[in-house]
Design a binder for these strands. Structure first.
Lengths: 222, 222
DNA sequence: GGGTAACGTTATCGCTACGTTAACGAATGT
DNA sequence: ACATTCGTTAACGTAGCGATAACGTTACCC
């Protein structure tokens, strides 16, 4: 899996590349640099920062679509630039994430975009003894169905997409509620969903792979 | 059941193939590739994108009809290209779907085309204890007729064509009204038709296979 | 190593969003 | 004009959500 991170803030680009270790990440810091890479290679997913020095990021998007490329595209942009969001998505971007964002959140979106792209093989997600049918929204542990609520399934997919990485409670809260503000809030409700997810999985005979990291967050350790 | 997806956007072709798991899907990305496949094999249904690189999609349609082939044909084309729709249908296509479309919608049309072809004389769809005569638009459960309205029948066929897949209320609303905008609206009317369909089927002694998935949609689980 | 404070776990519960159902006026077709 | 069907509305039932509080754990400090 190959990713291209088009981002002029070197620090941010580096942390993204460092976080998404399941993928091979390349980076581009300027418009021309990005153009060169895009014309040279294809990527499974392209992270595109719209505020790019040396050219408008949307022009890159247009280019990709005009060439009928099927690289997945996730727009990265400043928090309140809502117009960008709309323009970006109608122009063919697959997803959008607002700065500042949290890396697990980004990872989940990248995972989701890539999964959507390969709809054929990935409408069933398998991880160890867990099988998730994304079309019927059913979850199986060793063949027996485990009924999960929407939020529990959301959590499970989030963890599987970020396996072996510690996710902060705040990031989880934000992902579940879809609300940026929840990053700062109490997060207490996350406990409830984590608890229920763990309980349902263990009751179905699945080992406890969802572990707490004291003072930091949770991780799905496989 | 064999399908041919003639579509140059690889991502879209993959999504279609991945969604229509009840059929064996082959894909063709160019005019010549499509031509080769068509001349080599016959298909139960051919999905034909008219905006095809390397030749006009309508020429493929003409070819199929000149050879008196009876592969079912569904035209895929850009949303507002209404002339295509008319030309396509008068030239012998069996159905038409506008881009961008939703996969359940496509599945329903594929299902419908194949059934129509397969039972061109009898024209009967059977699913479990449900029997649908598409010509007289009559529905039978274990031999006794169940009078359904147009929308209820439409719903039933939609669900049968997308069995075991969760369909969002929005997609159902859009399918029933034929209006893209209904994807976002209140969808309240969907409740009414679902309720009536369920009532009529259960009153006729049919098990309840139409299930709600909380916060997500409905599915026909068989 | 006890004490303590911060963090994590778990069960309970009211609230809200969602879904169900029935009734009715609007729209449609014959 | 009539009957049928459609989609809106409102009242009701329910599942899941997230807050709360009581209880366990972990880490840290002396």
């Amino acid at each position: 899996m190959k990713l291209l991170v088009i981002e002029d803030e070197a620090e941010l680009a580096a942390s993204i590349a460092g976080y998404l270790t399941d993928y091979t990440c390349e980076t581009a810091a300027t418009f021309t640099q990005a153009l060169e890479k895009i014309e040279m290679f294809t990527y499974d997913c392209i992270l595109l920062d719209l505020t790019l020095p040396g050219g408008d990021g949307l022009r890159l998007l247009d280019l990709l679509k005009k060439e009928k490329r099927n690289d997945g595209i996730i727009i990265i942009s400043a928090r309140n630039a809502m117009e960008d969001k709309i323009t970006g998505l109608t122009n063919g971007a697959d997803d959008y994430i607002a700065k500042p964002f949290h890396l697990p959140e980004l990872a989940a979106r990248v995972y989701s975009v890539i999964r959507r792209k390969q709809f054929s093989s990935a409408n069933v997600v398998e991880q160890h003894e867990v099988k998730i049918d994304l079309l019927s929204k059913k979850v199986f542990v060793e063949g027996t169905e485990v009924p999960l609520t929407k939020k529990e399934l959301d959590l499970l997919l989030y963890f599987i997409g970020n396996k072996n990485k510690v996710i902060s409670k705040g990031a989880l809260a934000e992902h579940l509620s879809g609300d940026m503000a929840d990053m700062l809030d109490s997060h207490a409700f996350v406990y409830a969903h984590i608890k229920n997810l763990k309980r349902k999985l263990t009751e179905a005979g699945y080992g406890n792979y969802l572990k707490n990291v004291y003072g930091t967050g949770y991780k799905w350790e496989i």
